[in-house]
Amino acid sequence: MVANNPPNASDKTSDRELTRRSFLRGSAAVSGVAALAASLSPLRELKDFTSTEQFLQKYYKELNPEDMQKVINRIEGEVQHQYGIRPHVRDLKPMDGVEFVYCLNLTRCIGCRKCVHACVAENNQSRSPEIQYIRVLKLPHGSLDLEKAEHRYDTKQVPEKGFFYMPIQCQQCKNPPCVKVCPVNATWQEKDGITVIDYDWCIGCRYCEAACPYWARRFNFAKPQIPKERLNPEMSYLGNRPRKQGVMEKCHFCIQRTRAGRYPACLEVCPVGARKFGNILDPNSEVSHILREKRVFIQLKEEMGTSPRFFYYFDK
């Protein structure tokens, strides 16, 4: 410790002497530096810094095909570095004359939650902490009061007598409140009806989560953890590529499947065929038939004016 001598020290011996003043000054300096170091110490845990490429990346809608190819190469490299698997990342564009609609048969749903986990597996959601896009509500018969809904039911067998089940996920609204509140335009509605998120543009303010009346949006509070062997390598830029900490995510109708003509994962796994998906602009599609012929009773929270593309219907 360096002794700060008082300028008018009376005798020579006190030159090397420790005075209270100099001591306090020195110790304050040492503990100040130490406190600064301590306050910066969380930075030591930062391993995956945002790459310069990602930092300088342009807005999704301004990327030309060559830029997009570079971005895809970067993402493939990052995933391979983290998981040891070379993924196949694509940027699928909406098709002409296609608008997606989802229909769910409440008479058929047995509440087995297989859709929840098929979705997690398909869309590379974090397993721990857990992120799930679909929430299955258990409601007593004769009521649609969501206040009476239970989504943590833990019965040995489903369905239970006297209850029905209502899975809720992103409703892909025609008038999406989440898109309106985004301060940076990181989420928008595509022309095929899917509301997408650019995970590289999202700032994690969670306004959209607050705006959504369906609790469809999920936030990555922690770094997502996905076991290597469960990673789905078939990825899409706006869809199921691995997310990072601090960004929003939500159901995107399995964009990497549906824009390639396939059914979403939750539909394929549904053991009772309660889930129906297709192009509403095609009059011969399943969903067109359902909306014409079946008792399609709700768009959930219709009074919100969100006009969902997700319809619930009944048999009989």
């Binding site: 396939r262 059914y263 539909l267 129906k276 599609s285």
Partner: peptide, 15 residues
């Protein structure tokens, strides 16, 4: 008409 029962594969029969 596809409103009852399970389906899988492609919604777009062109693909």
């Amino acid at each position: 008409n596809g409103a009852h029962g399970r389906t899988s594969g492609y919604w777009n029969t062109k693909q």
